[in-house]
Design a binder for these strands. Structure first.
Lengths: 336, 336
DNA sequence: GAGAGTTCGGCCAACGTTGTCTCGTCGGCC
DNA sequence: GGCCGACGAGACAACGTTGGCCGAACTCTC
C-alpha cells in the first residue's frame, strides 16, 4: 500500500480511503490511486484488514465426510451458494469418518478464524466438547445430518425414522415377509436410527425378527456386495432388500445384477440416475440440498448475532417409486 | 495471548514460545501455560501469525463450475486430499459458468492470500489477464479441464480429441451411419474440442456431414431431452447418439426412456451407475480424480518454488463398454 | 475579504503474533 | 570463590491495514 501511495504520489491514508470507497476523495485523485493499484497489481491484504478492524473473516468452514459422495456434494453446493449470498467464502474439508481428523480440521479452521462451522460429524465415536469453547467464544457451529455429542448447537437432521418406516411399510404392504436390511456402521447416527425404525416397523408388521436378514458395518461397496450375495444364496433368501444409504443401494443393485436375481429394492437416499436403472427402485427421498441451505442459513443467523436457544430442523422424507427403465427392442439396428 | 500470559503469570513471549513448541522453555512453566491455554480456550490466531511471519497462509483456492456435479466433486475431493497432505486447507467455490463471478471469487481468494489457485475456467468468454499479476506476484495458478486465456500457466487437460475420436470410431465400426452428436455450449473448451474431433472422425469414416444431427448449446437437461426428441422424431432419425458430457448423457438416456426408443449411446465422462442402466452404454472414461490430484500436485510444486516453464498434462481416455443391466424375471414373487 | 466547509496528509496507535536482542540467573568448573 | 557459559525470560519492533485526530490547504459563499 505504501508502494501504491508512492506510485500515485498521494499519502498512504488516501490510498486506504480509496480502496475502502470513502466518498470524500477527489475523483481525480481516486482515479490516480486506482491506476497505481492496477499498475502495481496491488490487492488489499484482507488478513491484515480483518486483524485491524476485528471484523469477520468472511469465511465459514464446512466439514463433511466425503466430497465425492453426491449426497455430501449436494450439501456442499447448497452451503457454498448460501455462503456466496452472504459474501463469504467456504473452506471445505473431508473427515473421511475419522473423528481425530475431524477435530484437527475443525480446530485448524478455528485458528484461521472462520466465522462459523458447518459440521457433519464423523461416524466413529466423536466427542465435540472441544467445540463448546469455540461456540462460547463466538464461533457458532451447525451440525448436519448427525447430532453433535456433548455440546448443544443447531442441528439439521433427516427424518430417518419416518423414512425407514415408510420403506418397510411399502414392502410389507406388498406382501414381503422376508426383508433383508443392509446398514453401514452403526456408529453413524442416521444408520442406527434407520435400522431401529426399520426393525420396529418389521415387528409391527408381524415379521419375525430374523438376525440373518440384518447386516450392518458395511462401509465399502465390496462388503455390501458380499453381504447381499451371502443373503441371497442362503436358505430362505429375502424377497426384498432395504439399503440404508446411497452407497449401499449401489452395492445392492450391482450384486443383483451380477447374480441375475430380481428382488424388490428400497434404498435410503435418492440419486440422479435412480429412474434410469434396469431395476425398479423405490427410494426414500428428501431434499438434500435443503439440508445444506438451511444449515447455512441457521449459521448465518447465528453469525448475525442470534443467541436464541439451539434449534433442530428435521427434513421430511417422501417415498419415490422409480418404475425402472425398460429397454425396447432396437428399432432399426445397423449391421453388427 | 496476553490473557493467557496473565493467567499463567508469565510473559507474553513465553506463551508464544510454548504454543510454538520452542524447546528452551522450562517444563514447569510450559505446563502452566498449557493449563492456562486450556482453561481460557485460547486458539492462536493464524491470521496474525501469518501476517507477522510472512509465511504462507496454508490455504489454496479451488474454483470449479458446480460442486454438485460428480465430475467436479471428484476433482474437488482429490484436490482436498492432496491439500490435506500438504497441511493446507481448501477454499472451494463454484463459478456456475459465469466469468464475472469467477473473477470476483478468484480475486477474493487472492485478497485472502491463498498460496495458490486451482481453476476450472468458466465457459463463458473468460479472460484471465487479471491473474497474470497474481501469478507474477507469487500466487501460482493451475488450470483444470480447460486452458486459460491470455496467461500461461500449468494446465491439466483431458485428451478430448482422442476420446471423441474413439467414440465415433466405436459407432462407425458397428455400422452406424447416422450418428447424432449433442454438445453443451461451444464456449466451453472441451466441448468444441470434442465436437471438432467427432466431426473429423465422422468425415474420415465417410459419414456425410449432416448439420441436422449436430446440436450444441445444450446446457440444461430439458434442452437435451427436447433436442433428442426432435432428432428422433424427424425423418431419418439417427441410429446412434454421442453425448459430449455426463449431463448430456443423462438427458439422452432419460429421453430415450420416455420415448421408448433404443439407439446406441456413447457418452463422454463415465459415472458411478453407468453399468446399472437399463441401456447398454459406452462411455469415454478417464481418471477424473487424477485431474484434481495432478493439478494440486503441480500447484504445490509451484508453491514450493518451482519456477520452470508452465507444463501441460493430458489425461488419457479409454472407451468402456457397459453392457447394461438386465432384469431377470422375478424368482419368488410375493403376492401383489 | 472573511468565515465556513471540504479534502488531504501525516502522525500515532492498535489488531495478535513472532523475531531479535538483551539481560538476568544459575550451574559448573577450575 | 570467581568466572564463564548456557539457558530462560522479557522488552521492543514489526507484519499490513485502518481509525482517530488535527492541521494545512483549498473552495465556496456571502
Amino acid at each position: 500500500m505504501t508502494d501504491v501511495a508512492r506510485e500515485a504520489d498521494v499519502s498512504l491514508k488516501t490510498v486506504s480511503r480509496v480502496v475502502n470507497g470513502v466518498s470524500t476523495v477527489d475523483p481525480e485523485m481516486a482515479a490516480r490511486v486506482r491506476a497505481a493499484v492496477a499498475r502495481l497489481g496491488f490487492r488489499r491484504n484482507s488478513m491484515a484488514r480483518d486483524l485491524r478492524t476485528r471484523s469477520t473473516s468472511a469465511t465459514v468452514g464446512l466439514l463433511i465426510e466425503d466430497l465425492a459422495n453426491p449426497f455430501y456434494a449436494g450439501i456442499a453446493a447448497a452451503a457454498a451458494q448460501c455462503a456466496l449470498e452472504n459474501d463469504t467464502l467456504l473452506i471445505t474439508a473431508s473427515s473421511e469418518e475419522d473423528a481425530d481428523r475431524e477435530r484437527r480440521l475443525l480446530l485448524q479452521m478455528c485458528e484461521r478464524r472462520v466465522d462459523g462451522l458447518l459440521v457433519v460429524p464423523a461416524g466413529s465415536t466423536a466427542d465435540h466438547v472441544y467445540l463448546r469453547t469455540e461456540i462460547e467464544m463466538g464461533t457458532p457451529a451447525v451440525f448436519l445430518d448427525r447430532p453433535p455429542t456433548n455440546v448443544r448447537a443447531d442441528t439439521v437432521l433427516i427424518d430417518n425414522a419416518a423414512g425407514a418406516r415408510s420403506a418397510i411399510e411399502h414392502l410389507t404392504a406388498r406382501g414381503h415377509e422376508r426383508i433383508g436390511v443392509l446398514s453401514d456402521w452403526l456408529s453413524i447416527h442416521p444408520m442406527s436410527e434407520r435400522l431401529s425404525a426399520a426393525e420396529a416397523a418389521l415387528e409391527r408388521a408381524g415379521a419375525p425378527y430374523r438376525p440373518d436378514l440384518i447386516r450392518f458395518g458395511l462401509h465399502h461397496v465390496p462388503d455390501t456386495e458380499a453381504a447381499v450375495e451371502e443373503m441371497l444364496t442362503g436358505p430362505q433368501p429375502p424377497t426384498a432388500l432395504f439399503a440404508l444409504n446411497n452407497r449401499l443401494t449401489l452395492g445392492v443393485l450391482s450384486a443383483l445384477n451380477r447374480l441375475g436375481r430380481d428382488v424388490a429394492v428400497v434404498g435410503f437416499d435418492d440419486f440422479e440416475t435412480a429412474g434410469l436403472m434396469a431395476y425398479p427402485l423405490t427410494v426414500v427421498s428428501y431434499d438434500a440440498r435443503a439440508m445444506g441451505r438451511i444449515g447455512a442459513e441457521l449459521l448465518f443467523e447465528r453469525i448475525g448475532g442470534d443467541a436464541s436457544r439451539p434449534r433442530t430442523v428435521v427434513i421430511p422424507t417422501t417415498l419415490v417409486e422409480h418404475s425402472g427403465a425398460v429397454r425396447p427392442a432396437p428399432p432399426a439396428p445397423a449391421r453388427d
